[in-house]
Design a protein around this nucleic acid. Sequence first.
DNA 1: CAAAAAAATGACTAAGTGGTCAGGAAATTG
DNA 2: CAATTTCCTGACCACTTAGTCATTTTTTTG
Lengths: 217, 217
Amino acid sequence: MASKSKMDGSIGAKNKQKILVAAEKAFATYGFKGTSVQQIADEAELPKTNILYYFKSKQGLYVALLQDIMSLWNSRFDQVTEDDDPAESLADYIADKMTMSRTHPQASKIFAMEVLNGAPYLNKFFSNEHVAWMEGRVAILNSWIAQGRMTAVDPLYLLFHIWACTQHYADFSAQITSLRGKTMKRADFDEATRQLVQLILSGCGLTVPEKYLESAK
Amino acid sequence: MASKSKMDGSIGAKNKQKILVAAEKAFATYGFKGTSVQQIADEAELPKTNILYYFKSKQGLYVALLQDIMSLWNSRFDQVTEDDDPAESLADYIADKMTMSRTHPQASKIFAMEVLNGAPYLNKFFSNEHVAWMEGRVAILNSWIAQGRMTAVDPLYLLFHIWACTQHYADFSAQITSLRGKTMKRADFDEATRQLVQLILSGCGLTVPEKYLESAK
DNA sequence: CAAAAAAATGACTAAGTGGTCAGGAAATTG
DNA sequence: CAATTTCCTGACCACTTAGTCATTTTTTTG
């Protein structure tokens, strides 16, 4: 019943994926309005009409891509409980988000542009799952604070600041590269992660886990 | 010789200003490609051709606006010396940047979009003044560290993190509003500023100045 | 007040845009 | 192998867009 024809091995699924990859690159570089369907077609090496065949419209393709991107945001931090260690949980979360900025900068940029423009296609997401996720994480952080395991910071703002810093490395890479005179390599991201973990954890009265102390020197 | 006719009191200067204000609003909301000259004209309540009369092209208007925006970035922190107090200097800088995000969110968004798209019109700025500014600030921070007045953090990353957090409140306001269920008012910005000052200063081993401790309660 | 400069604007154009559609090719299926 | 579905594509269209240009109006100036 579910093995009809639209399975992943089919030619259609492969093309859809190719289009999504091309669209991610184009939208991240030129924005939604700044990207033409023709550009995506060129990038995907497919005729323009083929793009519109698989995705009903440019907007439909964009929304499909946005959904793909949102699913990338999941991390180990989603499963953390109040019995876990605050220092390690937060440090790992920061490290996970930094890894995302390094490995998926285009996704981060598309998300950033979407939010910058008022998040017209994310309002539903923001109003449901995201708020629930947030409430859960805030509750755990408050529990850690109540247990006296970390400084009494406002969890909401703490999470905002973690997002801001980690995403900054993807979204503002042009500025960072200019100021550093060179692009951020893997080792630079590792160093930035250590710096950020130290800053945030110290700011929360937490001890930095060993694995985030300066290593390879 | 300089008092010919193109002075600021003239009708032309007033219209240019009106156009820049309209353009800021439009570009911040819809991006460069997403904004038509007609939209700016409507917002400025001037005929479209009048826009093109004062600014040679849409791109010319955009670049002029970008320059205006860049000049807003100046702050007290530019004049700080190694003899100043690290805690107060950094706290004030953070507070200044938070004030900018509250009072000029549109400018912040336009800047963010420009950098997101690779900063094509800011590369010259990034390569000259900005790098020099950065080197000067890094030197002062390193001096403070050498004097043992703050923890040995990497000044470059510290500044990135300050920018990231402060600008986040302007650039990601749509997400923040959704998650909070209400917009950020003046009091909320003040609270966010206190939270951020505490986080960063504690993270740098500095004592939070009295004026940034929780007040009015 | 006349001449010159600055400001204003309606009509137009050329280029690019997202999207439709009809018809054909290829693959899948009973 | 015939039939049906999926896949593919060139031609085309309605519409928006930035920018030009010729002309007129307003302001400034000697």
